[in-house]
């Protein structure tokens, strides 16, 4: 019995040592997460759905751009903290995946983004560019193409061309 306890104790010590010693020089050990944070800018429509208003948020710093994009969408799906602003992402929408190929960032959503959409040109523009602007403003070198259920789609709510990568839309930003 005593021997078991000693063994377990030794095992715990070994695990701790592995976790606390940095793998490479300059890298922090796993047990001390990075303090580095980055500010991201999210775009939410105002009450009249005429303009986007920027909300800044701090998120943990990521090396890979796909991971940054994932964080941006995760924050966007949470909705705005400012009560005067609205989320332009339909209820139930989930992020499926993020891909980067050449200079295009593909963001793949679950079908709810289209199925639960309230419709209207304005509503559709707000959904699309809430996503596109939030990604483009933080990852400036990419244009953004929205995929639904893993595939490029003709449209999200019946007005806007969704087949092509889109760039930051400036004329609706306040």
């Amino acid at each position: 019995m005593k021997r078991w306890l000693v063994l377990i104790f030794v095992a715990i010590v070994v695990i701790l040592i592995v976790l606390l010693i940095p793998k490479k020089e300059g890298e922090r050990p796993i047990f001390f997460p990075k303090e580095d944070k980055i500010k991201i800018r999210l775009f939410f429509p105002d009450e009249q759905a005429e303009y986007f208003v920027v909300e800044e948020r701090e998120v943990e710093k990521k090396e890979k751009e796909e991971d940054i994009a994932r964080l941006i969408i995760r924050e966007l799906l949470k909705g705005p903290t400012n009560e005067d602003l609205y989320s332009a992402i339909p209820e139930g929408t989930k992020l499926r995946e993020i891909y980067i190929y050449e200079d295009v960032l593909y963001v793949d959503f679950s079908p709810e983004i289209s199925n639960n959409h309230p419709g209207g040109s304005t509503g559709e523009i707000m959904t699309i560019f809430s996503v596109v602007n939030s990604l483009c403003a933080n990852l400036t070198q990419y244009s953004v193409q929205i995929l639904i259920d893993g595939k490029p789609q003709e449209t999200l709510a019946g007005h806007i061309v969704l087949y092509e990568p889109l760039a930051f839309k400036k004329d609706m930003v306040k």
């Binding site: 105002d46 759905a49 005429e50 609205y86 309230p118 209207g120 040109s121 304005t122 509503g123 007005h159």
Partner: peptide, 14 residues
């Protein structure tokens, strides 16, 4: 077309 938005107070003609 007729319009729609996420906020139910959005209004107007465009």
């Amino acid at each position: 077309h007729a319009n729609a938005a996420f906020s139910n107070s959005a209004s107007g003609f465009e």
